[in-house]
């Protein structure tokens, strides 16, 4: 079965919620040393005016890497917006695989779930000393491209 479905390719080529988030309240990065995928998830967490509960009001991702990692991150940001931190903690690796709806080989699993791990890290590290600085505004990098001249 094809892993590069139209939906995956659409999110890869026309990513939603991609780019820095200047008013983010937390963010975190994860990378996959195997293929060099890098994902940073930026979150803005606000108190809901009606319920008083914390909620993700904005979510973006920055990163580079393979189509699976980028499409997955973009799809996930859409899923995160409107959720409470508790709800995000409950999202599993399996949920991500369902969201992508493609056969993921064990070698590509890390690519797919990188974004979820970054999002959870952003939540657990918020307010702590370890917390990464709010989104520094990564510049868009290419996945591979030409090697540098040595």
């Amino acid at each position: 079965m094809d892993i590069y479905t139209e939906i995956i390719l659409d999110y890869y080529k026309n990513p939603r919620n991609e780019g820095p988030l200047p008013d983010a309240t937390t963010c975190a990065k994860e990378d996959n040393p195997l293929c060099g995928d890098k994902i940073r998830i930026n979150l803005k967490i606000e108190k809901d005016k009606k319920t008083g509960k914390e909620k993700i009001s904005k979510a973006t991702f920055c990163g580079k890497g393979c189509a699976i990692s980028q499409a997955s991150a973009s799809m996930l940001t859409e899923k995160l917006i409107g959720k409470t931190p508790k709800e995000i903690e409950k999202i599993t690796d399996e949920d991500i695989k369902k969201m992508l709806n493609i056969p993921i080989s064990p070698a590509r699993e890390k690519c797919a779930i990188l974004c979820l791990h970054a999002a959870k890290k952003a939540l657990t590290e918020r307010g702590s000393a370890k917390k990464s600085a709010p989104c520094p505004g990564c510049k868009k990098e290419t996945a591979s491209g030409r090697p540098k001249r040595i």
């Binding site: 590069y4 293929c35 995928d37 890497g65 393979c66 189509a67 699976i68 590509r108 690519c111 290419t142 996945a143 591979s144 491209g145 030409r146 090697p147």
Partner: peptide, 10 residues
């Protein structure tokens, strides 16, 4: 080799 901006994994 590299091919355009396509990630080698892809």
């Amino acid at each position: 080799f590299t091919l355009k901006d396509i990630h080698p994994h892809d």
